[in-house]
């Protein structure tokens, strides 16, 4: 029974440990098309060769999203020159409020190579589903009117568009930089 559990764990992690840290995830991730903060179509399939760190958030997010963006700045500081080959994808889980213009102004103060992505609710839902992410609109008795409960994982995507690592909200910038560096030239 113990071994069966361990076996299941290894399968679920897709544990090919040859890259020392990088993983393969069966059935998680994949190509998608959304709209970037300039209002242009962004299709992951058209960017082979580019390494991305993708996460889900929204501009009315008071706490986790700005914190994640600040921590990503720290990741880039640790990466130094190698960071020029990494880009961030910020996928809005609140496309009803997050227009391309709003995403552009929200992300502008951060010193980050970040692309803000939005779309229709169903487009964003499809991306979240493909990546095993979760979001839900929750009405609030508040001036915020509503909030979005959402998952806080970040996905490291290699040049072939495959997810190679999933980071948790609590992961330290140093650890993220260490793993991301394995994919950078």
């Amino acid at each position: 029974m113990k071994w069966a559990c361990l076996g299941l764990l290894l399968v679920s992690l897709g544990c090919s440990d040859s890259d020392a840290g990088l993983l393969d995830f069966q059935g998680i991730g994949g190509d998608f098309t959304l709209t970037d903060e300039q209002g242009q179509k962004f299709s992951l399939a058209e960017h082979r060769g580019q390494v991305y760190l993708l996460f889900f958030g929204f501009t009315h997010c008071p706490d986790v999203c700005p914190t994640t963006l600040v921590e990503l700045q720290e990741v880039f500081q640790r990466l130094g020159g190698a960071g020029q080959d990494l880009q961030i994808l910020f996928v809005s889980v609140d496309p009803e409020r997050d227009t391309p213009e709003l995403l552009a102004s929200y992300l502008q103060p951060f010193d980050l190579p970040v692309i803000g992505l939005t779309g229709t609710v169903s487009q964003v839902e499809k991306v979240a589903q493909a990546y095993g992410a979760f979001f839900e609109k929750v009405a609030l008795d508040s001036a915020a009117v509503y909030t979005m409960d959402h998952s806080t994982r970040s996905y490291l995507i290699d040049g072939e568009g495959k997810v190679r690592y999933i980071f948790r909200y609590k992961d330290e910038p140093e650890r993220i930089a260490q793993i991301v560096r394995k994919l950078l030239p």
Binding site: C61, P62, D63, V64, F134, V138, L140, D141, S142, A143, A144, T147, D149, H150, S151, T152, R153, R168, Y169
Partner: peptide, 20 residues
């Protein structure tokens, strides 16, 4: 600010949840 509220945020696994 026009409005000030008390909010609580918590992580349920890797899900962020915020409530007034």
């Amino acid at each position: 600010a026009g409005v000030t509220e008390l909010h609580h945020m918590e992580m349920d696994g890797d899900r962020m949840r915020m409530r007034r």
